[in-house]
C-alpha cells in the first residue's frame, strides 16, 4: 500500500522564510498535525545557507554577499555552505515511526535520496547515491542533502543544481589562502555538475520539480495529496523567520 504524503509547492521565498517554513513543517509533522510532507521550493533572492556547525566568518565573504544582495542564513542541519541560486530545493519530513524511516542515519539518507535519483532518471540523468549525503553523476556532485532528527521526526532537505555559476559562488565563499580563485573554480567544475550540464538543455525549475515529485512517488511508493501549509504552519514560519533565522545570534552563533 502506498504512503500518503502531503505535497507543498511553495515557489520562491527568501532564505529566512524558507528555513522558517521548513522548521514549521518539521514541527507539524512531528506533532502529527500534518501528514509526512514533501516540499519543493526555490530561493529569491539568491542566498548562502550555512551548515549548523559552520562559522559564517570562516566560510563566507560577508561584504561580497552584501554587495551581491545575497542573504546568509544558518540551517538547522549540518553539512557545508550552499549557494542557492539556480536550483530546485526540496525538504521532506517523516515521523521516525514511519515505514520509510530508518533508525540509521546513513540508511535513511540512502532511502530518501532514491526519490531524487529516480526523479533525475526521469530527466534522462543516470545518478547514484554517494554516501554520506551526496548524489553524483559520472562522479560529479549534482545534489547535496542534509538531515536532522527532532521530536521523533526525520527531516531532510537538499538541492538539485539546475546550473552552476562558479564565478559568483566563489566571489561569495572564502577560499583557502593558498589556492587561487581560478584554480578553485577549475577544481569545483571538475567535482560539481548540474542538470543543464548533463542534459545540455535548460530544463527549468518547473520541469525538474515535476520530475522530483514523480521520482519520490515512484521510488518511495508515495501517494501525494497536493496541499497548502496550514495557518498554524504559516504563522510559525513567520515567527521562525523573524525571530530565529534572520537574527544575528543564530547566524553568527559559531
Amino acid at each position: 500500500m502506498s504512503h500518503s504524503f502531503r505535497l507543498l509547492e511553495t515557489g520562491y521565498s527568501n532564505a529566512f522564510y524558507n528555513m522558517g517554513l521548513d522548521s514549521a513543517i518539521l514541527d507539524s509533522v512531528a506533532s502529527g498535525e500534518s501528514l509526512p510532507t514533501l516540499r519543493l521550493y526555490g530561493w529569491k533572492p539568491s542566498a548562502i545557507s550555512l551548515g549548523y556547525f559552520q562559522s559564517a566568518e570562516e566560510e563566507i565573504d560577508l561584504s561580497a554577499c552584501r554587495e551581491h544582495g545575497v542573504d546568509v542564513v544558518r540551517r538547522i542541519t549540518g553539512g557545508g555552505a550552499v549557494f542557492h541560486d539556480a536550483e530546485v530545493t526540496y525538504s521532506i519530513g517523516i515521523p521516525e515511526s514511519h515505514p520509510l524511516a530508518s533508525p540509521s542515519i546513513p540508511e535513511s539518507y540512502r532511502i530518501l535520496c532514491q526519490g531524487i535519483i529516480e526523479g533525475l532518471a526521469l530527466l534522462g540523468i543516470g545518478a547514484e547515491f554517494a554516501p554520506i549525503n551526496d548524489i553524483i553523476v559520472y562522479g560529479k556532485k549534482i545534489s547535496g542533502n542534509a538531515q536532522t532528527r527532532r521530536n521523533h521526526c526525520i527531516f531532510q532537505h537538499g538541492t538539485i543544481l539546475l546550473s552552476v555559476d562558479a564565478e559568483t559562488m566563489f566571489s561569495l565563499l572564502r577560499v583557502p589562502k593558498e589556492k587561487s580563485r581560478g584554480k578553485l573554480i577549475q577544481d569545483i567544475m571538475s567535482r560539481v555538475t548540474s542538470v543543464s550540464a548533463v542534459t545540455g538543455r535548460d530544463l527549468g525549475f518547473e520541469t525538474v520539480a515535476g520530475a522530483l515529485k514523480s521520482g519520490f512517488a515512484s521510488a518511495l511508493d508515495i501517494d501525494f495529496r497536493t496541499g497548502q501549509a496550514s495557518a498554524d504552519e504559516l504563522k510559525q514560519a513567520d515567527a521562525y523567520a523573524f525571530g530565529k533565522f534572520s537574527s544575528k545570534e543564530w547566524t553568527f552563533r559559531r
Binding site: 551548515g51 549548523y52 556547525f53 559552520q54 562559522s55 570562516e58 538547522i76 542541519t77 549540518g78 553539512g79 557545508g80 542515519i105 554520506i132 549525503n133 542534509a146 538531515q147 536532522t148 532528527r149 527532532r150 559559531r254
Partner: peptide, 9 residues
C-alpha cells in the same frame, strides 16, 4: 566547526 553532522545538534 565544519561540514559534519551531529544529531542532536
Amino acid at each position: 566547526n565544519g561540514d559534519f553532522f551531529a544529531i542532536p545538534e
